[in-house]
Every structure is written in C-alpha cells, then in structure tokens.
C-alpha cells in the first residue's frame, strides 16, 4: 500500500520551547526571519486565577486535497509519490497564489530563492533516509508523533485509533495529514 505520512501533535505535551522551530531552521537552511514551523501561544484565556494557555505547532498540514496544489499555475506545488505536498523550486515563479490559498499560513517566499517554501516533513534530508523529521526528533515535550498512517502498526495509526484527534479548519475540506489532539488544553 502507498504510504501516507502523518503527524499527530499532542498539544498538552507541547511546551512551546521552540526546539522544533530552531531544529527546522538548521535542518532546512531556512533564511533568518522566516520559519517553516512555529509554535505560537494560544491564549491565555480565562480570568485570574483560572487561566489557560497552550501552544499550537503550526506548519504545512500536508493536505490530501491541497488548495495550494490546485491553484499553482506552474505545477510547482505537487503531490509526490508518497502523497506529500512538495514544491519544485525550479518551476516556482513566486506568484504567491498558493500562499493566498493556504488556510494555514504555512507558506512563505524564501528570501534567498524567491520561491515558495514550506515544511516538507524533511522529505529529502531525513524521510528518504528512514529518519523522522527534525522537529519530531528534537521535541522536548515528546508532543510529536510521526509515521505512516496506512500502516496500522505505526505509532500515528495506533494513536489515532485510540484518541480523538482533529484537523485544523476542517470546513475547507483540505483533508490534512497533520492531526491535533486538543485533549487537556482547551
């Protein structure tokens, strides 16, 4: 069966420590001031002393119905053989149409290349070597699970089978491969 790489983010375990943010920067040589992933604080909500806050790791959601792929005029944004949304920077002209289409603000114009850029799940540098993405391996809180959702034995598949997870902005029907477990934080 074809692979379906997926990520599960357990928000109650995310400490907002930004280790993933920095790991990604060096793994993928992301220019300064730009980020493929970030973990902003959501909140605080409530009133003293009953306050809540959590961190939501944000990056490309690896949609299976990706608006960015649909609108890309040059087919630079595409699905690769493993179903990941990737960008062929040779084809990209930097029109930013994909950025307007992405409901997750996951994309940016790389200031070194002038082309659209975003999370790739570290496809070239790590996945193809059998390693997990840099953010996953450096996660201090252990909030990130990663694997092949089509393999029922994988960590992600087992987690999703036993926990209630959500995708962000489900109303757009983008079918993301990044799943969030909001248990204990909202």
């Amino acid at each position: 069966m074809a692979k379906h790489y997926a990520m599960v983010i357990q928000l109650k375990k995310c400490l907002g420590c930004q280790a993933c943010t920095v790991a990604c920067k060096f793994e993928n040589k992301v220019p300064d001031g730009q980020y493929r992933t970030k973990s902003p604080a959501i909140g605080p909500s409530g009133t003293y002393p009953n306050v809540k806050v959590f961190f939501e790791k944000q990056a490309c959601q690896m949609c299976q119905d990706a608006p960015c792929v649909k609108v890309c005029p040059t087919t630079a944004s595409h699905y690769n053989k493993d179903g990941l949304v990737l960008i062929d920077s040779h084809k990209c002209v930097g029109c930013k149409y994909c950025m307007t289409a992405c409901p997750y603000d996951a994309r940016f114009i790389n200031k070194n290349t002038g082309t659209a850029d975003k999370c790739t799940f570290c496809y070239d540098t790590r996945l193809t070597k059998g390693e997990k993405p840099a953010c996953v391996t450096t996660c201090v809180g252990g909030a990130l699970l990663f694997g092949d959702a089509n393999d029922p034995q994988s960590e992600v598949a087992r987690y999703m089978a036993t926990h209630r997870t959500e995708v962000r902005k489900a109303q757009f029907g983008t079918r993301p491969s990044v799943h969030y477990d909001y248990e204990g934080v909202k």
Binding site: P73, T74, A76, G94, I109, T115
Partner: peptide, 14 residues
C-alpha cells in the same frame, strides 16, 4: 511582484 520576476516565462511552459 513575483518572488522570481525573471522566471515569469515559466508560467507559459508549465
């Protein structure tokens, strides 16, 4: 406005 103005011609070939 393109990120790579000089590559606009790629719009025609892709």
């Amino acid at each position: 406005d393109l990120g790579r103005p000089l590559s606009f011609w790629k719009l025609i070939f892709n």
